[in-house]
Amino acid sequence: MADIKQDLKALARFLDVKGVKVNVNSETKVPVLTLNGMTVTGLSSVANYLAKTAGRRDLIGGNDAAERAAVSQWLEYRVTEIDRCHSEKDVSTVLKELNSYLETRTFFLGERVTLPDLLIMYGVRSAVSLLTFQEKEKFMHLSRWCDNVQSIEGVLQKQQTPVFFVKNPLYAGVQS
């Protein structure tokens, strides 16, 4: 449900890394990044490499080993769960799962934005934008997080329109 190439390009632009070329193998859907003659393969590796190149170690968990491991785990979630959704049922399972995870959290890890916030938001935004207002309210925690991350300056590129969320709850008793 996501466009890996666009997502990685958006990430590169957010991190202000220039001269990036991303190609996605049409069969395996594995992205390959070319930057200054270096090639990096795979979404997780590309994202980590971009963050390091930009000097944003805080995005990949800094020096905390546990947090760095959690970053890789959630990037793995994006690759194995979100990018492999084939049916609407898969999508709704993913959204439900994310919603319940985010119930007690502002961001995916710790108290600051990290790579998983960005890449998972890029990954689910098209699916979230297709939800009705009632469904968005049902996934209220996911909606709150999504609205928050997409509002961070530079996360959405000019051509990307933010997903619309209503400011106040409309329905009674739909939140799960």
Binding site: M140, S143, R144, N148
Partner: peptide, 10 residues
């Protein structure tokens, strides 16, 4: 705070 991350804004 159910549908907001902060008291005001983002």
């Amino acid at each position: 705070l159910a549908d907001r991350s902060y008291i005001e804004g983002y």
